[in-house]
């Protein structure tokens, strides 16, 4: 049984700068992987390699044995990669419900001609309502995103990603910008989703929440992987500690 996601020997160079150096890791089905590292560690670049926004200089990314190399973002999403972006970008002209319903209608929208001959939205709207309930914002289903506070929009982003029924969900700093109460609540939701069997990679700066919900951590610094394993043992590794203390960011 091979891994759900396997990232092999990824190197990314921008001009003369190496943003990511020879990083490899696997994610197993059902796993919740915390991906951490100080600012400028190359986490975002690594994430963009997985989503297809950055083409790696070397190395490969495979999802369930499919080589994702060269595939554009939407193809990767169609193959089962879910994305919840750091800077949330809902469709501002759609209600929260329709934002999620569109994603839930992936089978209608995979091909434009098929979309032309599909009309009913009731089933997708019902599913969207369920997902909004799951992330705890079903009471604002009919609101327009610009009128919602950031915490709600972050949850909306999560619900939209879930509506695509991903095999693996990438969460890019979902807790950033939230206060501690909101962050804890959203982290609980994430942990709950994982318990239901969804595999996730959580990129996050909020270390206490990551430590609380992620059994396994991946640490990157200066573009290199410096730790990978059970959370407790990774965080007691002197190399990891110095990387964090070095940037003045105690866990």
């Amino acid at each position: 049984m091979s891994a759900l996601l396997s990232v092999a020997d990824i190197t990314v160079r921008f001009g003369g700068v190496e943003a990511v150096s020879n990083v490899s890791f696997d994610v197993q089905d059902g796993e919740l992987l915390g991906f951490i590292g100080p600012n400028g560690a190359g986490k975002t670049t690594m994430m963009r390699v997985i989503t297809g926004l950055v083409t790696p200089t070397l190395g490969s990314v495979c999802l369930e044995d499919w080589d994702l190399g060269g595939l554009p973002v939407f193809r990767r999403v169609q193959r089962g990669l879910g994305l919840a972006q750091q800077i949330v970008r809902p469709f501002n002209s759609f209600s929260a419900l329709d934002n999620v319903a569109l994603a839930a209608g992936q089978h209608h929208t995979a091909r434009p001609m098929r979309a032309l001959f599909s009309f009913r939205r009731a089933r997708e709207r019902a599913k969207a309502r369920e997902l909004l309930k799951l992330v705890g914002i079903d009471h604002v289903a009919d609101s327009m995103p610009p009128s919602l506070p950031l915490g709600y929009r972050k949850r909306l982003e999560l619900a939209r990603a879930l509506a695509l029924e991903p095999r693996l969900l990438l969460l890019d700093e979902p807790l950033a910008g939230l206060n501690q109460t909101e962050a804890t609540a959203l982290a609980d939701t994430i942990a709950d989703l994982n318990r239901r069997g969804l595999a996730m990679i959580l990129i996050e700066h909020n270390l206490s929440e990551v430590m609380r919900i992620c059994p396994r951590l991946l640490v990157q610094d200066n573009g290199r992987k410096i730790g990978d394993g059970p959370a407790e043992s990774v965080m007691s590794d002197p190399l990891v500690r110095s990387a964090y203390l070095g940037t003045g960011e105690p866990g």
Binding site: P72, V73, F74, V77, Q78, L83, Q85, R89, P90, F91, N92, S93, F94, L102, A103, Q106, T109, A110, R111, P112, R160, L164
Partner: peptide, 16 residues
């Protein structure tokens, strides 16, 4: 309508 609103987000919800 999704593409008119935001092309990049449309890609994230798997639209070609």
């Amino acid at each position: 309508a999704a593409i008119a609103d935001d092309e990049d987000t449309a890609r994230v919800v798997a639209l070609d």
